[in-house]
Design a protein around this nucleic acid. Structure first.
Lengths: 347, 347
DNA sequence: AGAAATTAGGTAATCGTTTTCCTACATTCT
DNA sequence: AGAATGTAGGAAAACGATTACCTAATTTCT
């Protein structure tokens, strides 16, 4: 059969020459169709004996189906794209890492795309994923764009994470947390500690998550009869979260009554705020309570002075996969948690 | 031609029904082959006029080639897999982010894979990428494994980043920094500041990068006639870098002569060391100089007390792409930089 | 026992490209 | 002028799977 087979190739799955389903079929003594059926579990289409033969041939040859052929024929690939609006944000990286593990476990392959929050880039990626027949896209901070609206007609192929769809989509699959409840927890905690006056530094409210946090926090303060004057609500457009925090805090410290506790809608903002105090008002460092939002595991190590809401990023992976596999609309809110700072003072 | 075309579809690239190269060919009044040739720039195979016709048809129809078909036929895809040993490490996340941007710019699509430093997972991913006809894999912390050895026969399809191939590969493409020189810089800086005794906390030396840093630092100390006793070199196997730092520093503080400056082979280790001092020996916080390695942009904000070597992660992306496109072996060493802590004391 | 239904598996069409042959015409060389 | 070369483009064969359709042989139903 194989005249020039090198002698010392006892059982190594060589794969040298392209080994296709036809090779397997020949080796197992069945037709190509049968091999395909066995591999795809189309039972009641083959006998137990055939199955064994085929599986053994597959095993011995180390055969793996060519993805391109399968995709071409079936019109469906196992690719899932994660479109993140900003990979420099550690919380996005956490989600990406968690998603990768969970997706892989379910047999998907994750493509990572950084849209930099720009509609054009997002569209470019959405088109690219279309021509890849991607199973779905996971939008980690979606912005409005033509392709997204187009794709929204198949809501089962999109999962929105943290930030809701920029334009209402019926049948939306969503994974996130209960921002309203979380900021209520924050406000209540601050209220109990009687650390007035309070302040708020927030990010761009074009993100639904930020909007929920801001609105929720303002509403919570009102219902607690806790003063939160307009001058104590800061946002600087057009810069990174770190800068937003820094500039926000700087601005707050110019007020006649500087706040004693500051809620930042993200950890990065809190880092920035802390840095500002550190550089410009070191005396206030242990007087002002900073509350963040995210609480990445790293916080315990490098920002132990930070209180805040812990978002369970590690469980986002599984959640995303269930949203993906769900055949009906889904609004998956994962449990958040209040976390106290590990050190008493803002050292 | 199109009898039931909805009236209000003036120029929208509908894409509704599957629009293939045949559609374009028909619209342009040429054969399928010609369209393909125009799209792939096989010039001297078509006239300028034909090109215009085809391109216009492509544009009007919003046509994009089906990736699966192209891959199947040509046996080459534009997929590039980034196999990272640990995505929880912020420096890996930085590289991944930079790689994604650069790869995309060159028309590649990046698949992200977290191997968790385990050979089995790495092999699983390598096999998977094989069946995807991936253009290449970028190994961000490779471990030895059968599939890797197999793939090493095509060195042009692997790029090793930071950590060299676990087994020598002729024709290796490598992207990293000059660890030897970097740690020499560190040792000299420490030496000049006369902050003896010195100490070293390092990670697992199975990583070539860590090995180079450890060996280089020890050698540099020796050549500077700077004492670095065995008891001042710490490593705790089997835990995260953060824990390595914490435990290492804890151990160092039990010595009769605790060090005054400590070199940590990664920022995470330095974070851990700092945390240990913070919790157990706060009085020493401003006495002991900590030197890290990586210097992520976040350091300026949340670890301004940390000196160290700045690795130019943002330029890794371009470097990886050139390594990928290089037709000969490559050892690309990017310029590192010494960075002083932004705050005088280890506050 | 004969009809109907189920099981097992083969044949061949199909997915949308790329690419190898061809052919036909126009140019340049001898 | 005839041969050689180059240019432009069409027809059709791959690439490697999935799956609709078909045929036999078995089992189950009436």
């Amino acid at each position: 059969m194989t005249p020039k087979d090198p002698p010392n190739t006892p059982k190594a799955p060589a794969q040298s020459a392209s080994i296709s389903i036809a090779t397997v079929a020949a080796k197992a003594g069945v037709s190509i169709a049968t091999v395909s059926r066995v591999l795809n579990g189309l039972s009641s289409k083959f006998s137990k004996a055939t199955q064994t033969k085929v599986l053994q041939a597959v095993d011995e040859l180390g055969y793996r189906p060519t993805v391109a052929a399968r995709t071409l024929r079936s019109g469906q690939s196992r690719l899932v794209a994660l479109l993140a609006s900003n990979m420099a944000n550690p919380s996005m990286a956490s989600i990406a890492a968690a998603a990768e593990v969970a997706l892989r476990k379910s047999g998907y392959v994750m493509v990572l795309c950084d849209t930099h929050d720009q509609p054009e880039q997002q569209d470019e990626y959405l088109k690219e994923m279309g021509s890849h027949n991607a199973r779905a896209v996971v939008m980690l901070g979606a912005v409005d764009s033509p392709e997204l609206r187009q794709l929204a007609k198949s809501p089962e192929r999109i999962v929105f994470v943290n930030r809701h769809a920029p334009v209402p989509i019926e049948g939306e699959r969503f994974v996130g947390i209960d921002n309203r409840q979380a900021v209520l927890d924050v406000a209540q905690w601050m209220h109990q500690r009687r650390q007035s006056p309070m302040a708020l530094i927030h990010g761009d409210v074009r993100s639904s998550a930020t909007r929920e946090r801001v609105d929720g926090f303002v509403a919570a303060c009102k219902s607690l009869k806790q003063a939160l004057p307009r001058s104590h609500i800061c946002f600087t457009p057009g810069v990174s979260h770190l800068d937003i925090g820094y500039l926000g805090m700087k601005q707050l410290m110019t007020q006649k009554t500087p706040p004693l506790s500051v809620f930042c809608t993200s950890d990065l903002i809190a880092y920035g705020a802390h840095r500002c105090l550190h550089e410009l008002h070191p005396g206030f460092l242990h007087l002002i309570t900073l509350v963040g939002f995210d609480h990445s595991p790293l916080n315990d190590w490098i920002a132990p002075w930070l209180h805040g809401i812990r978002v369970p990023y590690e469980s986002y992976g599984e959640a995303i996969v269930s949203a993906l596999d769900s055949d009906k609309p889904l609004n998956l809110l994962l449990p958040h948690q209040w976390v106290n700072a590990r050190t008493a003072s803002a050292l």
